[in-house]
Design a protein around this nucleic acid. Structure first.
Length: 276
DNA sequence: ATGATGTCCTGGGCGC
DNA sequence: TGCGCCCAGGACATCA
């Protein structure tokens, strides 16, 4: 389930393979993923050079020397696989493949097709409907306790829903929201307007901390990349609350157990004993 | 305007 | 063994 750290890791894995490289061939094997792939997608990329790759929220933006930007979202099951070009046939869910001038394949594979692959002019990115309403990056300077407090202080939505809302802060998904709230000892059931500025001052550094540690774990996974199977962005990571229903809470001195509840059709894992 | 719910999609796990 | 059911989940669309 790619959230910010997985997308960042994917970006760091793609950069050395694609940046500065000419894309000699694009294999587009479907018309759509979650939304249609533009009809001129292949034509606008083939023969051109990827200047740089940037992560924004859970999106990758690949800037071409033509002034176009490829926009890519991994959805929930999307990933890039890197391998040298050979005779191996493409797999069932290999939807888009970028082939570089030096014979490397960057394969976008996405079984559940919740991802996005599209393209737009670089100078229209900021006003693009996918990006125009986005909140601050959680690892950027703009995101601090006061920022978060201001975004949620009058909301009757739960803090769980608010942290998942990309207009409040981007990049967080179900897993890291559960983890951050557990570490902050804040109940996912509390409404935004019930949090104090002290609460948000506690929460923000913990969000940054868990994201940074996950990115670090992702970076370690890339070091072994040459010997691995070529899958970018997915790595071993231990969570303290997520997926640990029935296990003891790991917070210092807490003897409660992790519970699993349903919020908005999604599972929330939290400790009712210490998360108030 | 805000918040809650529905929707898309496939593979894996489970119960019978 | 196989069938059907449910679940995972990001973000937009739609409804109240």
């Amino acid at each position: 389930m790619p959230e910010l750290p997985e997308v960042e890791t994917t970006k760091r894995g793609l950069s050395p393979v694609l940046e500065g490289k000419r894309i000699t061939k694009v294999h587009q094997r479907r018309d759509n993923i979650r939304i249609p792939i533009p009809a001129d997608f292949v034509k606008r990329i083939e023969g051109h050079v990827i200047k740089s790759i940037v992560r924004r929220a859970k999106y990758l933006q690949m800037f071409l020397n033509t002034g176009d930007a490829i926009i890519c979202h991994l959805g929930m099951s999307g990933k890039f696989v890197i391998r040298e070009k050979d005779d191996t046939p493409f797999a069932k869910h290999d939807h888009v493949i970028f082939e570089t001038e030096d014979g490397i394949l960057a394969i976008y594979n996405d079984p559940r097709r919740f991802g996005i692959m599209t393209i737009c002019y670089e100078n229209e990115l900021e006003s693009h409907k996918l990006f125009k309403d986005m909140a601050a990056e959680p690892l950027g300077n703009e995101f601090n306790g006061a920022y978060l407090f201001d975004k949620i202080k009058s909301s009757t939505s739960t803090i769980k829903a608010l942290l998942l809302n990309q207009k409040v802060v981007v990049g967080l998904g179900n897993i890291y929201v559960c983890e951050a709230l557990n570490m902050a000892k804040i109940s996912p059931l509390r409404k935004g307007k019930e949090l104090s500025e002290q609460d948000t001052e506690t929460l923000v550094p913990l969000i940054r901390d868990i994201l940074n540690r996950a990115i670090e774990a992702g970076g370690s996974s890339l070091k072994d990349f040459a010997g691995a199977d070529g899958d970018l962005g997915y790595f071993q990571h231990q969570f303290k609350a997520y997926g640990r229903e029935g296990e003891q809470c790991q917070n210092d001195g807490c003897e409660g157990n992790i519970d699993r509840i349903n919020q908005g059709g999604r599972s929330t894992f939290y400790c009712p004993t210490c998360q108030k």
